[in-house]
C-alpha cells in the first residue's frame, strides 16, 4: 500500500519532468540559451587568456580559479571530517579484511595487479601533467592515483600499503591542493596583481607565457597529488578493525 503510493507519486513526478523536457529547447542546437551566453568569447579568446589548449582546464584554473580553489578545499575538508569521525589508520592494531578473509586472493588477480599497477600510476601522472594540452587534468589524474592505491590495498592487504605509503610522507601531500592554489595566488599578489592572476606583468615579456604555463602545471600537480593522497587516506582510514 505504502509502496504503491510512493510509486504512484513518483510516476506523476516523472510525467511532470518529461513534460518539462518536451518544452525545453532541442538538445544540440547552437542557438540554445546555454550555448549563446558567454561561450563565443571563451572559444575566441580562451586559449590566449586562459593559457591552456584544453579549454576546460583553462576555464577551471583561470576564469573560475576561485571556484576550483573552493573545490579543492572541499576535498580537504571532507578528508578532515572523515579523519575526525574515524581517526587515522593504526598499523599496530590493524588486521585488514583482505588479510583476514578466508578466501585466498586468486593468483590471476595478484599477477595482473602487480603487472598493471605501475602503468596505472604512470598513466595518472601523464593525465595530471598533460591536463593543459589534452583531455585530463588534476582531478582526473588524482582520481586514478587514488584508485591505484585502492586496488593495491585490496589485492595485497592493508599492512603492505600502510608501510610503503607511510603516514609520515602522505600527510605532506594531503594539503597539496589548497597549498598550490595559495602559492600561485600569492605569487600574483606579490607582483601587484589580483589573487590567482597567472599572467604576471613583472616578468619579462618573453617569459610571461612560460611562467604562466609553469604556474598552471604547478597547480595541476598540486590538485592531482593532493586529491590522490586525500582519496587514499580516506580509503585507508575506512579499513575496518575486526572486532575480537
Amino acid at each position: 500500500m505504502k509502496k504503491g503510493l510512493v510509486v504512484f507519486a513518483l510516476f506523476l513526478l516523472w510525467i511532470l519532468l518529461v513534460y518539462t523536457v518536451i518544452v525545453l529547447p532541442p538538445m544540440g542546437s547552437p542557438e540554445n540559451p546555454t550555448n549563446t551566453h558567454i561561450i563565443p568569447r571563451y572559444l575566441e579568446k580562451g586559449v590566449e587568456e586562459g593559457g591552456a589548449h584544453n579549454l576546460v582546464t583553462g576555464i577551471i584554473l583561470n576564469y573560475r580559479g576561485f571556484d576550483t580553489m573552493g573545490e579543492v578545499t572541499v576535498i580537504f575538508v571532507a578528508l578532515t571530517c572523515v579523519l575526525a569521525v574515524l581517526g587515522r589508520e593504526n598499523i599496530l592494531r590493524h588486521t585488514s579484511k583482505a588479510e583476514v578473509s578466508s578466501v585466498e586472493k586468486s593468483v590471476i588477480v595478484k599477477c595482473v595487479v602487480r603487472f598493471l599497477a605501475p602503468f596505472i600510476i604512470l598513466f595518472a601522472f601523464y593525465i595530471i601533467l598533460h591536463g593543459a594540452e589534452s583531455p585530463g587534468g588534476g582531478f582526473q589524474g588524482g582520481a586514478i592515483l587514488g584508485a591505484s592505491v585502492i586496488i593495491i590495498t585490496l589485492t595485497f592487504g592493508f599492512a603492505l600499503v600502510a608501510k610503503k605509503l607511510s603516514l609520515k610522507y602522505r600527510v605532506l601531500f594531503e594539503s597539496a591542493g589548497p597549498l598550490s592554489f595559495f602559492i600561485a595566488g600569492m605569487v600574483a599578489i606579490f607582483c601587484g596583481q589580483n589573487f590567482l592572476t597567472y599572467l604576471l606583468p613583472c616578468v619579462a615579456h618573453t617569459y610571461q607565457d612560460f611562467v604562466r604555463h609553469l604556474l598552471l602545471i604547478m597547480v595541476e600537480i598540486g590538485i592531482g597529488v593532493g586529491g590522490g593522497a586525500a582519496i587514499s587516506s580516506i580509503f585507508l582510514a575506512m579499513e575496518k578493525v575486526e572486532k575480537e
Binding site: 580562451g46 579549454l55 576546460v56 576555464i59 573545490e71 571532507a78 582531478f139 580516506i234
Partner: peptide, 22 residues
Amino acid sequence: VNPIPQALILTGIVVAMSTTAL
C-alpha cells in the same frame, strides 16, 4: 561543444565524492 557545463560538472563530481566519503 560548450565547455562551461563540463567545468561545472567537474566541481559537482568532486563534491559528490566528498559527501559520499563523509
